[in-house]
Design a protein around this nucleic acid. Structure first.
Lengths: 230, 230
DNA sequence: TCAAAAGTGTTCCTGGTACACCCATGC
DNA sequence: GCATGGGTGTACCAGGAACACTTTTGA
């Protein structure tokens, strides 16, 4: 069965740049290996065609799960790429999303599609299909920008985390070292972290206190004009 | 002639939220009156279908000129809206842009399409077609956000402007009064304004010195990590 | 000479930055 | 007892915020 229109229509896809923090020391993204032409065998961002009855975000979440098994994650629209020749076959416009996951809680499941999925360190990506390198760069810039003035970093950490891990995350993504005392002072002063009565386990040194981000409190403060900024 | 595809495809449109500053005192946006169903007779954002051989931005610029005569303006991608029922006829995904113009330099030309175009104050918009109210709100929020940390405000002013006009612009968009001395100190300290040997003319009081934004210098500083922030 | 906006400095206080040592724990 | 990271306070400095008067010009 075919679907016909009076004017030619571009195809619409979604693509996802999903960031994860590996052992809290390397920023990685999720890629899949294409088993179809074009760019067969090359690595690419997970994504695919938007179905006629689903929203863009639904499409992104569905493709992500189908191709990588990853689900229930923070996902936000990034940018829409519409260069005419970005796909050699056809005019394809892609609406891109970036996502954040706590890598520790995710094992890559066997994918239902035959594509292989894997995490790659952001500073050593393979050659990517289509214009996915550009999409990745856009996502990385967005992540760096947003991290400063929105509390999205917590999405990359487990629910309970020591402050040092949070600091490490900022250092990795922003690419600069931060002073431990100043970092703690600043983040604690915002009063958005819940101090837990728990400590790290199985560490070969003094165990650090664990904290939890207070999402509800943040939402309240945000409505009152509060601005997270680090 | 028809165009057929194996799977159904959404239609792709672009829509533009173009802001202008009227007499330097009211923030307005550009609307057109629809002369076609649906929402016939209602006001809507200028926009239309993306052609198969043009980029998204080209489509936005073209529709803008066709429907309103406005061209050669600052335009930046805003967000892509893809709710399933946002158009009652068909599945339509719209890639939206926001634009900034110096209203003083623009007269609305007779439009080639029959639609009527007009500027409306942002705080007194008519009922808008489709989900255009939501798109407008998104654009306004983006404008407010960007104005603080990127020098886009100059796009809303003539090339040569007195500092008081720049301040007024910030006050209008951000919705709060600013201290004159502090504002001047801050903006002049950045050293991004060229002090001209010209003054206002035809004003019924002391004429203010005119300034000009130094785009080249800003680009240089930006590369070196400088951040515009007001 | 009056009205209307232009233009200009100082003080105070907050918040950022720089910086070094002791503590708890596991091995 | 040693190695590893956890945890803490202070002094200095820069930049933001508050604030009022004189100047210029046209009507």
């Amino acid at each position: 069965m075919t679907h016909c229109y009076e004017f030619p229509r571009p195809a619409i896809t979604v693509d996802c740049v999903v960031f994860g923090l590996d052992e809290q020391h390397t920023l990685k993204i999720l890629l899949i290996q294409r088993n179809l032409s074009p760019f067969k065998g090359q690595w690419a961002l997970p994504g695919g065609f938007v179905r006629i009855g689903e929203t863009l975000e639904d499409a992104a979440l569905r493709e992500l799960q189908e191709e990588t098994g990853v689900k229930d994650i923070f996902l936000e629209q990034l940018y829409t790429f519409g260069a005419i020749d970005r796909d050699p076959r056809d005019r394809v416009i892609t609406v891109t999303y970036y996502g954040l996951v706590n890598l520790g809680e995710y094992q890559l499941e066997a994918t239902t599609d035959a594509d292989e999925a894997a995490w790659f360190p952001c500073d050593r990506l393979p050659l990517l299909a289509f214009d996915h390198e550009m999409i990745f760069q856009t996502a990385l810039n967005r992540l760096k920008g947003k991290l400063r003035y929105e509390p999205i970093g917590f999405e990359l950490l487990p629910k309970k985390f020591p402050l040092s891990q949070l600091q490490k995350l900022y250092e990795i993504v922003l690419g600069q070292e931060l002073d431990k005392r100043n970092f703690r002072k600043k983040i604690l002063k915002m009063d958005l972290l819940i101090e837990l009565d728990e400590k790290q386990k199985d560490v070969p040194h003094r165990a650090a206190r664990l904290y939890q981000f207070d999402e509800k409190k943040y939402q309240l403060l945000k409505q009152k004009g509060f601005n997270f900024e680090l």
